[in-house]
Design a binder for these strands. Structure first.
Length: 670
RNA sequence: GGGCCCGUAGUCGAGCCAGGACCAAGACGUGGGCCUUCGGAGCCCAAAAUCGUGGGUUCGAAUCCCACCGGGCCCGCCA
């Protein structure tokens, strides 16, 4: 454990229970006392060590629940064998320790000091804590709450959300949930990139068609128009360029490349035509009437930036249609946003211009053919940022174009202004964005340094999302080789429904559907969250749709089984104590429950929801083991029965907490 | 050419930041068991790993450092 985390745990509020943390604290105190005592008696000087850092999880329960490797460290200076040091240290520590949660302290080969927990006491403490704190159990609050903005998803508003973007949405949403539960003031933002070319193309096509009322899901409807329009316009442009190239006797390589690109687009057009024949033919006719589609589109962009009334109305209208569809999809996935930020608002409010002005004054810009460039490399050297940014001494920072020669801004420029904007009401900003943006995110940081926003530069966190492969291949939006988030949710739901129908035919129809919905959304979210965000994920239908092997179903099943127990019992009573839970499966289960606070704090502070997926899986596993071995409804000893019921209730409480953090939905029956 | 990320059983994937009992968690798949007990979407057992390769640091390396190899991505007056 690092010192930050140790400190975090050490500074926990008194009123928040952390059973395993209390055990850890006892071990630390004992070890510190033992070590100080030893320092006074030994001839060789002992170093000042943070003994808390030497405590670790032993590989298996026979070595206790915590172990210290301190003796290995000391053996060096003492010129003794680690095991000898360990024996002496263990003896001293044992004498000075208050043995409450600690059962025993022993030295073992080759030199560890093992701390065995008093599992009876720990079980009791844990169950009391869960009973007392209820749904707040485990959600220990940070001692340094921060106003935090989490920007995520920010899908291009020109086509439906695909599964790659969905990964960012799910991680971003889980991060926001974790941080909020940790006590931070969290706001989620969606960045609407409406100033770019794609929205203009979409609006262009939409207007040509006479602004039809969407049929079916709005984002799919307008997205279709975008794809067709973009393809047709691109083909027009390539044809024009080819004519020009021939006229000017251009090089063969240029001709070949352009021809090849044209062929590719014609292929894509053929696909689109067969998929959407009506829209394709109509748009094809309409666009061919326009002498210069490219010019029409550029004009839309220019007018929109200037907030021309008619253009603005059109652009906002069509973007809003897409966003309505986005919201519908995101709502299905239990993802919500506090704020939707329009990129064009940054332009209209003058924030982008202001930023460019500041950068110009800094002296780190230069002119290149009328365009304004930011000398990123120079700034990196001037401020000595290589180490701060964690890049090697030979990293070449290319300059960043801030303004085109016609004076209009670029996406990167607006993104810097946007991130600064997010800091206006936050101390920390987390950008959940695809890993391909890493250079761009570096540039944002450098721009912060240049404009004197050093505090912001430190508190600006780039959370990269690794690529999503589709059945082993890269996805391609333009080739139509991608899966939409809606498709994934639909397919998973269909499959979940079949499973529920098969396994629980007695449940009423309406409830079966609701159950299937819960299982489906949980399956998708868990499948994404259980693999670290940075890793590229291979999306395989068979895997997401397989509930028999899916961990979300496994976790839910633990919950369902607990429901079954309670249902069978009918009514329950409070136990007098927790002293009869002595079976290893019971104590292992309680031990797992005792670790929620530490696991949660680490997951939230390290921005690592995957950690909680693993924890949830482990807890479910412990519960299933308990379920197999430990009977409840048939035991004749009532006190034992109610004690076991209390354990079951605690598991249910923690499973619900975990579900809330990860955005899973638990079904009572499945 | 420069850089960033990833590389752990047939497959997927924890552990790496904060080195320690690692003959490496868990899962899928494979082989074998368990339904007169609260729901078998489960439990138990078994086989399966040169931790990409080679050096180095260390009492100790999957973990830190260096080099190399493989895969992905970025280096636009695109977004």
């Amino acid at each position: 454990m690092n010192s930050d985390l140790a400190q975090t745990i050490g500074h926990q509020r008194q009123d928040q229970s952390d059973p395993f943390g209390s055990f850890r604290h006892e071990c630390e105190t004992a070890l510190k006392a033992g070590y100080s005592a030893l320092k006074k008696t030994w001839e060789h000087r002992l170093p000042d060590l943070d003994v808390a850092l030497t405590l670790e999880d032993p590989p298996n329960p026979t070595f206790g629940q915590l172990a210290s490797s301190l003796s290995f460290e000391l053996a060096k200076t003492q010129k003794k064998k680690p095991i000898e040091v360990a024996r002496t240290l263990a003896n001293t520590t044992r004498q000075l320790a208050k043995l409450d949660l600690i059962e025993s302290i022993e030295a073992t080969e080759p030199g560890y000091i093992n701390f065995r927990a008093n599992l009876a006491r720990l079980t009791e403490l844990t169950l009391k804590s869960v009973q007392r704190d209820g749904s707040e159990y485990g959600l220990i609050k940070t001692h340094a709450p921060e106003r935090t903005v989490v920007e995520h998803t920010s899908a291009n508003p020109a086509r439906p959300i695909h599964i790659g973007t969905a990964k960012g949405a799910i991680f971003g949403d889980a991060l926001a949930r974790l941080l909020a539960a940790r006590g931070h003031n969290v706001r989620t933002h969606f960045y609407i990139d409406d100033a770019g070319r794609q929205v203009a193309i979409m609006a262009y096509g939409y207007k040509l068609l006479g602004e039809p009322t969407p049929e079916g899901k709005p984002d799919h409807f307008v997205g279709k128009i975008y794809s067709v329009t973009a393809t047709l316009v691109e083909i027009e442009e390539l044809k024009k360029r080819l004519v020009l190239l021939r006229k000017t006797n251009a090089s063969d390589t240029d001709l070949v490349a352009t021809t090849k690109s044209l062929d590719e687009w014609v292929g894509i057009a053929a696909d689109l035509q067969s998929k959407y024949p009506q829209e394709f033919d109509r748009l094809n006719k309409l666009i061919s009437k326009d002498p210069d589609p490219e010019k029409s589109i550029s004009e839309l962009i220019r007018k929109y930036e200037k907030k021309d009334l008619d253009t603005t109305a059109l652009m906002r209208r069509v973007t809003q249609i897409i966003l309505t569809g986005f919201e519908e999809t995101l709502r299905r996935a239990r993802i919500r946003f506090d704020q939707w930020d329009w990129e064009t608002d940054l332009l209209w409010t003058g924030r982008v211009a202001e930023l460019v002005g500041q950068l110009k004054e800094s002296g780190f810009t230069f002119d290149q053919g009328g365009a304004l460039e930011l000398d990123v490399a120079k700034a990196v050297e001037k401020f000595g940022l290589r180490e701060t940014l964690g890049v090697s001494p030979t990293f070449e920072f290319p300059p960043l174009t801030l303004l085109r020669s016609d004076g209009t801004s670029l996406y990167a420029t607006r993104d810097i202004a946007y991130t600064l904007y997010k800091f206006e009401n936050a101390e920390r900003v987390i950008n959940v964005i695809g890993s391909e943006q890493s250079l761009a995110q570096f540039q944002v940081k450098v721009a912060f340094w240049i404009t004197g926003h050093r505090k912001e530069a430190e508190k600006f966190i780039y959370f990269p999302i690794g690529h999503m492969l589709l059945e082993g291949q890269g996805m391609s939006a333009r080739r139509g080789r991608y899966v939409t988030f809606d498709q994934v949710l639909d397919e998973t739901l269909t499959r979940a429904r079949i499973e529920v129908d098969r396994r629980s035919p007695s449940i009423p129809e309406e409830l079966r559907q609701r159950t299937a919905e819960r299982i489906a959304i949980s399956a998708v979210r868990y499948a994404i969250l259980s693999v670290e965000a940075i890793k590229s994920t291979n999306f395989v239908w068979g895997k997401v749709l397989n509930f028999e092997t899916n961990s979300a179903a496994f976790i839910n099943y633990a919950y369902t089984r607990s429901s079954g127990i309670l249902r069978k019992l009918g009514k329950i009573a409070e136990p007098k104590a927790f002293n009869l839970l002595t079976d290893p499966v019971e104590q292992e289960l309680a031990l797992e429950l005792s670790k929620l606070p530490e696991t949660f704090a680490e997951a939230a502070d390290d921005l690592n929801p995957t950690l909680l997926c693993l924890y949830a899986n482990l807890l479910a596993q412990r519960f299933h083991e308990f379920y197999e071995k430990s009977d409840i409804s048939h035991v004749s000893n009532d006190e034992l029965k109610w004690q076991r019921v209390a354990l079951v209730l605690a598991v249910r409480t923690v499973l619900k907490t975990l579900a809330g953090l990860l955005g899973l939905e638990l079904a009572e029956r499945m």
